[in-house]
């Protein structure tokens, strides 16, 4: 049960936090369609978080989704650092989206056969949404990576920061063996390997270099509750309305 919960929580927290970050583009997108795209993907991500929290609530005797999303302390969050970073400029947001969603779609593909049935069902249900998220990211990476000198330089700079952070997605937890043995999830190592192949190929196609990771401890710690300096302010803002009047029905 602990193993399953650990998996559900890191996935839910990643989705919730990147969803919140995407939503910060609402009203500020570089063009109207992108404003809508990021807002819409934000809703999808928050929906995924809701679905995962609900599985934990209904099948693992946990609190309800609202309580889990809005009433935990920073150190109880299990998201990776990559999703916590501020949206930056559009290059940063798109580079992060690309790296995150490629991991996300693979993770759910691996989970489509999970022995946690509701999780396997969710994986199948949202596959189309993730395909679109990946299509969105791929299209921009291709366009901006091989666009002008400036767009290329900006994308490369964004990947130089986001790529090392993205390795934090695959930080292993204490239940890797159990998850594999119980056929819940194939494990972070497998996921990392396939992700790296896919991402590197697409970066090359977009004329972008795969950054060298000099310090492998960058971006690590999130899965055990140690976060970047950016998470507290995000949680403060995200829970503001919820805290106004606890238990109120909206």
């Amino acid at each position: 049960m602990q193993a399953a919960k650990e998996l559900l929580f890191k996935m839910a927290d990643d989705a919730l936090i990147i969803g919140h970050r995407h939503s910060e583009w609402t009203g500020l997108g570089p063009i109207l369609e992108e404003d809508i795209a990021l807002s819409s993907m934000a809703q999808d991500k928050i929906g995924h978080a809701f679905a995962l929290f609900t599985i934990s609530h209904e099948h693992f005797n946990d609190h309800d989704a609202d309580t889990l999303a809005f009433q935990r302390n920073e150190n109880e969050f299990k998201c990776c650092h990559l999703v916590e970073y501020p949206i930056g400029e559009y290059d940063f947001t798109i580079a992060r989206q690309f790296l995150f969603d490629h991991a996300e779609i693979l993770r759910y593909e691996l989970l489509a056969q999970s022995t946690i049935e509701p999780l396997a069902r969710l994986a199948k249900k949202i596959h189309g949404e993730l395909k679109y998220h990946v299509l969105h990211a791929n299209s921009w990476i291709k366009r901006l990576g091989s666009g002008t000198d400036e767009s290329h330089a900006r994308m490369q700079a964004a990947f130089n920061i986001t790529y090392p952070l993205a390795l934090g997605i695959f930080e292993e937890g204490p239940f890797e063996v159990e998850l594999k043995d119980r056929k819940i999830f194939a494990g972070e190592e497998v996921l990392h390997r396939i992700w790296e192949e896919n991402v590197c190929e697409l970066l090359e196609q977009a004329h972008l270099k795969v950054p060298e990771v000099k310090n492998p401890s960058i971006g690590m710690g999130g899965r055990s509750g140690y976060h970047s300096e950016f998470l507290p302010a995000l949680l403060e803002e995200m829970t503001q309305v919820f805290r106004l009047e606890l238990g109120v029905e909206w």
């Binding site: 249900k125 949202i126 596959h127």
Partner: peptide, 8 residues
């Protein structure tokens, strides 16, 4: 083949 993008 991408009809599933609209499924939800």
């Amino acid at each position: 083949e991408n009809e599933d993008m609209f499924e939800t």
